[in-house]
Design a protein around this nucleic acid. Structure first.
Length: 303
DNA sequence: AGCGGTCAAGTTGAT
DNA sequence: ATCAACTTGACCGCT
């Protein structure tokens, strides 16, 4: 069975996650900063709860959690530990409620730290900050029962092989809470599936296959062959990403995401797999509904 | 109420 | 050498 996933936010449904900036917080005293941050964290925990209920009610069985759900958690100036936050017990309990809810209703949750989280950087400071952020996300992942923390390979820094070697070293130093959830994803600029598969195989790290990225940055392998190789890196349900280009394949930047998914972009070889497909489309939950319906319609036409 | 400027982080590649 | 793009909304603050 295919499990479709929604990424982080909603287009129509009024469920919002709050954020703040370090610049805004600068003006406050530390205890005021912590109070403001705690309010946002609790709000976001409640929003996650609502988001998961929405998913259950609408048969969406996977939800990607925004990595800023605890905003500025590891920021050099504004960062904080949970113990520092007022009513942190309540915040953590609310996240744990989310975890119980997901277990009960078989909803998968994932994290996707953003582009600044890099384990292949030549800068040890960058790696250190990245590891700290991964540890924070693993902490939340533990509460909510998320089984994936998915990152990209990062930059090439002029030498891909050397960078991949640093990536391996970076992975080796991760604590178990991160490593047991860590996945690598092929990107659309530097690292194609073929670059990452050896790392994944050697280190027991699953590969998240983004077929749109693969179409942007080919490595000579077909979608079918790559799908098969990628499935082999998973000892649990594989996770794939899908999106459609906003301005078609021939525009200057095919990497931009469309509001919806063109059902023709859904690989036929995925149809009968037991996989999670996270839908990366700007119309969010509406795009998930439309894709499911379009695939049903397509199947009817073929039969 | 509406709107414009702004936002932690790193790297690449266009100019 | 510089700076936008990546992706992208949500927030503050001003009108």
């Amino acid at each position: 069975m295919l499990r479709f996933g929604l990424c982080c936010i909603f287009r129509k449904e009024p469920i919002k996650f709050r954020r703040t900036t370090a610049k805004y917080l600068q003006a406050f005293h530390r205890n005021q900063q912590l109070k403001y941050l705690a309010e946002i964290c609790l709000h976001n925990a409640h929003s996650l709860n609502k988001a998961l209920r929405y998913c259950r009610d609408h048969d969406i069985k996977d939800f990607r959690i925004n990595s800023q759900i605890l905003p500025l958690k590891t920021h050099p100036d504004m960062g904080y530990s949970m113990e520092e936050l007022p009513f942190h017990d309540q915040i953590i309990q609310t996240f744990k409620d989310c975890g119980r809810f997901c277990r009960k209703h078989d909803i998968r949750t994932t994290f996707h730290p953003d582009q600044f989280i890099l384990l292949s950087s030549p800068s040890s400071e960058v790696i250190q900050r990245s590891v700290a952020d991964l540890i924070y996300q693993a902490e939340v992942a533990g509460w909510v029962n998320a089984d994936v923390i998915n990152i990209h390979g990062g930059g090439a820094y002029g030498n891909k092989r050397e960078s991949l070697r640093r990536l391996r070293k970076g992975i080796e130093q991760l604590p178990e809470a991160v490593r047991s959830r860590l996945t690598l994803e092929n990107d659309d600029r530097v690292y194609a599936p073929k670059d990452l598969l050896p790392v994944c195989r050697d280190m027991g790290i699953p590969l998240v296959y983004d077929v749109h990225h693969h179409r942007c940055l080919s490595d000579g392998s077909s979608v079918e062959a790559t799908t098969e190789m990628v499935v082999g890196t998973w000892s649990r349900e594989p996770l794939f990403h899908l999106s459609s280009p906003r301005d078609g394949w021939d525009s200057g930047k095919p990497g931009s995401h469309h509001d919806y998914i063109d059902a023709d972009d859904f690989p036929g070889c995925w149809t009968n797999l037991d996989i999670t497909v996270e839908v990366e489309a700007k119309a969010k939950e509406l795009a998930v509904f439309k894709l499911k319906q379009d695939l049903i319609d397509r199947a009817k036409r073929i039969n």
